[in-house]
């Protein structure tokens, strides 16, 4: 039908030159306007991000000093600090990394290298993709119902580390799969040709070559875990902690101590949330300062990830 219309128009209504140039002019102007619109959206969203950062800087930068980083929270806003919060964050992140990174790499390698094409694999694939979209607060409910009560782990560093590990597992899995998939076939074939078996190929060739890609995924995942608030709030982490968990290292044999895993804790985003919820202005300043420390950490981690990826790509090109 459209074709017939087109023929008629061409055959019986040839445009005059003036009309044609008008139509083209309109089309070109629209094209240009749209390009402007695209740039405008870009500027708008970046402007929002800038406004957010500037707002935090204005409110909170002056509050960050040595005392702020080395003091416990307090009822008096001017004396309060984030010592227990950043120590808690570090310990929770350590737990998360130790669980999520090995597990995610293993699952990713299985899906990419071993998984047969059948319904079991299909279920695992759909499952991973769905897990990536499950709201973080649902993970919090999982932790509350299963880890805190049924398994009796309590409201501890271990519970928080575990739930955040599950939360970022899909990120690590997807990154591992992409990294493994992008390794040139020639490396694999060379290794097989030398008589290596499948696991030897993976361990000695695939994993080392995939390391930067996997590292990127792990960093992005951990930066997400650092800022996650909802699941940690849901397990009922305390907001006022004026002591530190036991140190992971000790001077006596065996030098490592795992009591910190079962210690109560708080983390930076929760400390920030707590201070936002207070009515006094002075606590909001503390919140801004905490937010500044948080955002500095996540942005740095993401910048590092972006840099690694950029280097990878320019290496692949040369």
């Amino acid at each position: 039908m459209a074709a017939v219309d087109f023929e008629h128009r061409v055959a019986f209504n040839p445009m005059s030159e003036a009309e044609a140039s008008r139509v083209i002019g309109v089309a070109k102007r629209r094209d240009f306007l749209f390009a402007i619109l695209g740039v405008f959206v870009l500027v708008l969203s970046m402007g929002m991000l800038t406004a957010l950062i500037v707002d935090l800087l204005v409110d909170g930068l002056a509050r960050i000093d040595y005392d702020f980083l080395t003091s416990f929270p307090s009822r008096r806003p001017a004396q309060a600090g984030i010592l227990s919060a950043w120590v808690g964050t570090s310990l929770v992140m350590l737990t998360t990394a130790l669980i999520a990174i090995p597990l995610g790499i293993m699952a990713g390698i299985y899906l990419e290298e071993y998984a047969p094409r059948n319904w079991v694999t299909d279920i695992i694939e759909i499952n991973v993709s769905n897990l990536a979209g499950v709201p973080s607060i649902i993970y919090g409910l999982l932790a509350l119902g299963l880890f805190v009560y049924t398994l009796g782990l309590g409201r501890t560093v271990l519970t928080a580390g575990l739930v955040l590990a599950l939360l970022i597992l899909p990120v690590v899995i997807v990154a591992t799969r992409e990294a493994v998939r992008s390794i040139p076939l020639i490396i694999r074939e060379g290794a097989y040709g030398m008589g290596a078996d499948k696991w030897q190929v993976i361990w000695h060739y695939i994993l080392p070559a995939a390391r930067p890609g996997i590292l990127t995924g792990a960093i992005v995942g951990l930066s997400r875990a650092i800022g996650e608030t909802a699941p940690v709030l849901t397990i009922g982490a305390l907001t006022f902690i004026a002591f530190l968990p036991p140190s992971p290292v000790q001077p006596e044999f065996p030098f490592l101590n795992f009591d910190w895993l079962t210690s109560p804790f708080t983390v930076m985003p929760i400390q920030m949330f707590n201070w936002i919820s207070r009515p006094q202005e002075a606590f909001h300043i503390n919140a801004a300062a905490t937010g500044l420390v948080l955002i500095a950490m996540t942005l740095t981690m993401n910048a590092v990830a972006i840099w690694i990826r950029y280097r990878l790509r320019s290496q692949a090109r040369s």
Binding site: R224, E228, M272, L294, T298
Partner: peptide, 10 residues
């Protein structure tokens, strides 16, 4: 990369 709690503050 911005933590959601920071967006909440904003």
């Amino acid at each position: 990369a911005v933590p959601t709690v920071v967006f909440g503050y904003f």
